[in-house]
Design a binder for these strands. Structure first.
Lengths: 155, 155
DNA sequence: TATTGTTATACTCTATAACTATA
DNA sequence: TATAGTTATAGAGTATAACAATA
């Protein structure tokens, strides 16, 4: 057994050295995602939408009548994971699945009237969120640059 | 009931309009995180470490003997969630919890010899990952700018 | 009273395999 | 054979409340 008192400094709990960790893209992206989720859910608490649900509503509004798998693929969500998401939206009467002529396998997706109403509220929430991002980034050029760098990294 | 054939175009499945969705920071960050996790786990598959575990090992190596709650706070991980993470690392004999003199509540964290060995391999994996990021971003200035913008947004 | 570690629970997102019905 | 939707399971991350032991 080593003696612990040689290594543990009980009298001066100074700040931890974290330079190696904090300079890694890995660590910064992990922390950023956590804070992103936290802030998003705060802004969207009134409309009760998750990030993926909001994107789905917005995309269906832009492309009514498209197949479930087309919407999922454009969002970058696996078909399998998109099912429960759509079940949730449909259970809240925000979207509906209609049958497609000549292909009884597919479902065409539409927003309901209340889905369009909620999307209006959600767009205001997103505008608030985007405005906060814009302010933190320090202006439109910085925002465009951030999105461009993000696209280079993960586009 | 509306007629579906008026809205569903079965003959020309052109690409979906996604400008509204794709221009939002929300959507881009959601997609980026998914790809980040996928790439990270690919690079770290040999050492079998998750992002949070790698950061924990690196931080403990820089600050041996610190309390569990200090390491967790510096990493931005809740105490409660850090327990199972440390249980996992300790179960693999990569870290150990030692008792602290004058405070029987606390655990001081240390890397074991095999923990230090694995961290060496993990640092090589991270160097590969960071090099890939650097190449995608297009150079050190772009990398620094990306980290700076990320810190403005979520720091 | 406050802190440390712990347990339990729940929520968001993701990946994968396998199944049913239909094309 | 291939596609669309579905189910089930597993894993990564997060937050919160409550508890025992200790300070």
């Amino acid at each position: 057994m080593e003696k612990i008192s040689e290594t543990y400094n009980a009298t001066s709990p100074e700040a931890l050295a974290a330079s190696t960790v904090s300079q890694s893209v890995v660590h910064q992206l992990r922390r950023a995602h956590g804070r992103f989720m936290h802030r998003f859910l705060h802004h969207f608490s009134a409309v009760n939408l998750r990030p993926a649900e909001y994107s789905a509503l917005a995309l269906i509004a832009e492309n009514p009548g498209r197949k479930q798998s087309e919407i999922a693929a454009t969002l970058g969500i696996q078909r399998a994971n998109f099912v429960s998401l759509m079940n949730d939206l449909e259970g809240r009467c925000l979207t509906e699945r209609r049958s497609v002529p000549n292909d009884r396998r597919s479902h065409a997706l539409y927003l309901t009237a209340s889905g369009q109403n909620l999307l209006s509220d959600a767009r205001r929430a997103e505008a608030d969120f985007e405005a906060e991002c814009l302010e933190r980034l320090g202006g439109t050029p910085a925002r465009e640059q951030f999105l461009a760098l993000l696209a280079r990294l993960f586009g």
